[in-house]
Design a binder for these strands. Structure first.
Lengths: 130, 130
DNA sequence: TACTAAATGATAATGATTATCATTTGCAAA
DNA sequence: TTTGCAAATGATAATCATTATCATTTAGTA
C-alpha cells in the first residue's frame, strides 16, 4: 500500500483545482496559509514524484520556469514565448489526427501539443522590428 | 547602415547551417576552432540580438537549456520532454490550418507548433510505471 | 513501545543565463 | 592618418530556478 503524505496530496489537489498551469513557487504561495511550514524543496520533490507517478504532467520550462499541469488527458496549449502566458485550446479532431500522424512519422509517443507564438499584448510591442 | 560583427555573422551562419536546433554552448564549441577567443557571453548576447532582429528564433528551454533555430519560416517540431531530442516534422496543410485556427480562437500570433512527448528511447524506460 | 523507511525543512550546491565593467574594435569626421 | 565615439567583446561576478545534502521528524508496522 502506498504512503501518501498530506503535503503531496495538497499539492496534487492544488494543481487539479486550477487551470493556470502553475509553477512550484505559485503552488507554495497557495498552500502556505494552510501549511505554514511547507518548504519549497518539498514542493519540488513532490512535483517530481507526482510526475513520475503519472498523476501530473510538466509543461516544460516556459519563460524560465517549469510549469505543471494537473490535467493528464492529452490536450493542447497556446503559449506566449514572450511573457509565458498560457491559453488552453480545445482538443479538436484535427489536433488529435495531427498528434497521431506525427507520432507515426517520428516514432514518438506524443502527449501534448503546444502552439507557441505571441499573445495579443506581446504581439504589439515586441515584434515591431522586422 | 547597420554594423555587423564577425562574431554575430559567424553565429548566424552556424545556426543556419545546422538542423539540430542547438544551444549557446554547442554553438560556442563549433566556432571555437575558428574563433579561439570567442566568449560564451558573446554568443548569448548575439543570440539575443539576432532573435530581437527576427533573424533567428528561440525554441524555448528544452531539458533545461534554451535551443535556437536558424529557420524562421513557420514550421513544426516534435520534442522529447525526457531527453530533449528534437525532430522536425513536415509542415502539412493540417498543421497550418490548426495554427491558423488556434490563432483566430486565442488572438495569439502563432509562430510554431511543438508536439511534445517521449522519443522511442525514453518511451521504453521512463514510462513503465503507470 | 520500538523499528524502519519515507518525508520534511533548512540550506548549500549546481548550472544556465544575465549583468557589469573595463578594454578593444571599427567606422567616420576632421 | 589621427581622433572620437558608439558598438562589441572578454572576463568574471551576480542571479535565479532547480537539485542535492543531511540531520531530523513522521507514520506505519512488528
Amino acid at each position: 500500500m502506498e504512503r501518501y503524505s498530506k503535503n503531496r496530496q495538497a499539492i496534487l489537489e492544488c494543481l487539479r483545482s486550477t487551470k493556470i498551469h502553475p509553477t512550484a513557487g505559485w503552488i507554495l504561495d497557495q498552500l502556505r496559509p494552510a501549511y505554514p511550514s511547507l518548504n519549497l524543496a518539498t514542493v519540488y520533490r513532490n512535483l517530481i514524484r507526482l510526475k513520475d507517478d503519472g498523476l501530473i504532467r510538466s509543461m516544460g520550462d516556459i519563460a524560465g520556469e517549469e510549469h505543471f499541469d494537473g490535467d493528464i488527458q492529452p490536450h493542447a496549449h497556446v503559449i506566449c514565448t514572450c511573457c509565458g502566458k498560457i491559453a488552453d485550446i480545445p482538443l479538436t479532431e484535427s489536433i488529435i489526427n495531427l498528434m497521431e500522424s506525427a507520432g507515426r512519422q517520428t516514432g514518438f509517443e506524443i502527449l501534448a501539443s503546444q502552439l507557441t507564438g505571441l499573445c495579443p499584448s506581446c504581439s504589439g510591442s515586441e515584434n515591431r522590428k522586422e
